[in-house]
Design a protein around this nucleic acid. Structure first.
Lengths: 339, 339
DNA sequence: ACTAGCACTCCGGACTTGTGAGTGCTAACA
DNA sequence: TGTTAGCACTCACAAGTCCGGAGTGCTAGT
């Protein structure tokens, strides 16, 4: 009962602060939310909440502001998930129709997400490591150079140029290509290293240099290249907070330029299919202490999976953003499945 | 003589303003630059320069600030080209060595440019329309789907998925592939439409659907896809100007999210090989009135060409940026030639 | 357990003032 | 005629002062 009201107060504080961006006081609170008690009572609750570390005052005689811990409690226990509005659903389905290409899907998704959340959006390309090989092609460009094209069942196309020491014969290349195709086609990336380990044995000695370098390149493509690409959009939304907040955007912009950092932000998402929220200092990245990250994994029928999400100030609309991220993740998974 | 000094004054004003970012007054001017005259004389010159529209004062009794027109005169007649420092040259050549991939070159270039100019950098992918076809590949993914991979001599790889109505036979596809390869291999993109116009005639009627759709896809790839990709880097540098300037970064960030806008900014570069500078209002893009754009074309031995450049506030270090853009453009051209 | 009242704190806006950088003008000078 | 010195004038900006109001914590009363 008493506990209940305290939580209600916390929720009210978070909601008000998110919408007004100003410290919220006891009086304003009772006026805006019809809690049936007087400001004085609220003040007692606030004092208790402050003791427990859920809220704080920027300075004496100012209203209260939620702390990271307060937001945490809010998203864990208090925030419902706002259903998306119908224009939003419409936008998603419109975007759904006209995708032609994996790149296209990624770009459209990131735009969509940025647009409906009004935040910075991130979308990771489907992970190669959980993909299967759909096709592999070796194409001679000159007598010493060839290009390897790798196509996954998630629609991704990887290419690598290979420089050979000796000249390549048309016949040898065709031979390698044919056998390689048989060996790896349809196989998951994770099993490629094993397959390759016994591969070169079937070729005569004079072809070994060629086979070896091709093999090495392929191996590199499926393993070392676990560093994935992330597309980014909606950075302009950062400027909205510009001066108004401790969130000085410089470090954030810098962080967003590093692929590695983006991956860290997206990475280590929840094990299950739910949305993950990292609030303020919970973020593993320096310079992002006053931002929150909302992420979700999107899966392509278990064959490949990656993450997407949004980044915004800690005082974001968690309910709305969680709903948006979740919905978009579902849609994207579905689209990629269809392809 | 008198004219000469006035120009010297303008140059001094621009240089001081660029380094301090504060309106510069007559007294400070004579102290910092050893013009052999008194402040009063300078004031007369300044008044003249103001009448001609080269400088302006933000408010009475403030120093003078160059106008767009002032900058224009400065870059056209007054600014020497700063040679790059040796660490800069070293950075460029280090970057030069370790490029493996077209994508890699683009990413590295944009980073490099952003780093040495401390501005936002843009690099356009080599234009397809001036490229030659190095190889074309058709790969069946299923009985009704195939993927077309197009490799240009600038190292770019384009892929397209093609959905056929009827089932594809291995033989038919091989036939089309072989003839297509012969027909277009080594040809410039610009001549592909002509080549294709007579292409389908050589196939029997039952193969027409297949040939037609492949042909259409290829045609689309070489023509409609003149919309080029642009990579972007160094946006964090924008934040440096953050509040300090009329350059509110929101519209700029927004503009930078649109590929089309980026192309407009890069586009219409100078006819010759020199660097182009667009100052403030000279920019064709709304919201970029207080930014300048420095661009140059980089060519790959006449076969393909595109632009790169930097974007910064009008009070940028023109001499330095022009030198950097020019140097980087040369290096990139050279690297892509080698590949 | 809640509320009313009260004294206290302190941020932030408004207002004032003073200072200094900068200007334009005029008159003297080479 | 071009340059300089001197001077009165303007005005942004910083510092200082003041005051109101929002908000708090505490205590006593319901």
């Amino acid at each position: 009962m008493l506990e209940d009201r305290r939580l209600a107060v916390l929720r009210a504080i978070v909601e008000d602060y998110v919408s007004t961006h100003e410290p919220v006081g006891s009086k304003a609170l009772v006026e805006r939310h019809h809690l049936g008690v007087s400001p004085a009572t609220i003040r007692n609750d606030m004092a208790a909440l402050e003791d427990e570390g859920y809220i704080a005052q920027p300075h004496t005689s100012a209203g209260r502001v939620p702390t990271d811990r307060g937001y945490r409690l809010f998203v864990d226990r208090l925030s419902g998930v706002k259903p998306l509005s119908s224009p939003e659903r419409r936008a998603i389905s419109e975007f759904l129709d006209s995708s032609v290409d994996l790149d296209d899907v990624m770009v459209r998704t990131v735009r969509l997400l940025a647009q409906i959340t009004k935040q910075v959006a991130l979308v990771q390309y489907p992970s190669l490591s959980r993909s299967n090989v759909r096709h592999i092609e070796l194409i001679a460009l000159s007598t010493t150079r060839l290009i390897m094209v790798l196509i996954t069942d998630s629609g991704r196309v990887e290419q690598r140029t290979i420089e050979c020491l000796g000249p390549i014969t048309e016949v040898a290349l065709g031979d390698v290509r044919a056998r390689l195709l048989v060996a790896v086609s349809g196989q998951p990336f994770s099993s490629i290293p094993e397959i390759l380990s016994a591969f070169s044995g079937q070729f005569p000695a004079e072809m070994q240099p060629l086979v070896t370098i091709i093999q090495a390149t392929l191996l590199e493509a499926v393993t070392e290249r676990i560093d994935e690409r992330v597309v980014l959009g909606g950075t302009a939304h950062l400027a909205r907070y510009g001066e108004a907040f401790p969130l000085s955007i410089q470090p954030v912009l810098e962080a967003l330029e590093e692929q590695v950092v983006l991956l860290r932000l997206l990475g280590e998402a929840s094990t299950n299919n739910m949305v993950t929220v990292r609030i303020g200092h919970e973020n593993p990245v320096e310079g992002m202490e006053s931002t929150s990250v909302v992420t979700a994994r999107y899966g392509i029928a278990n064959s490949a999976a990656a993450s997407l999400g949004v980044i915004g100030p800690t005082h974001m609309d968690y309910a709305g953003n969680i709903a948006a991220v979740q919905a978009v993740a579902q849609y994207v998974g579905r689209i990629l499945d269809e392809q």
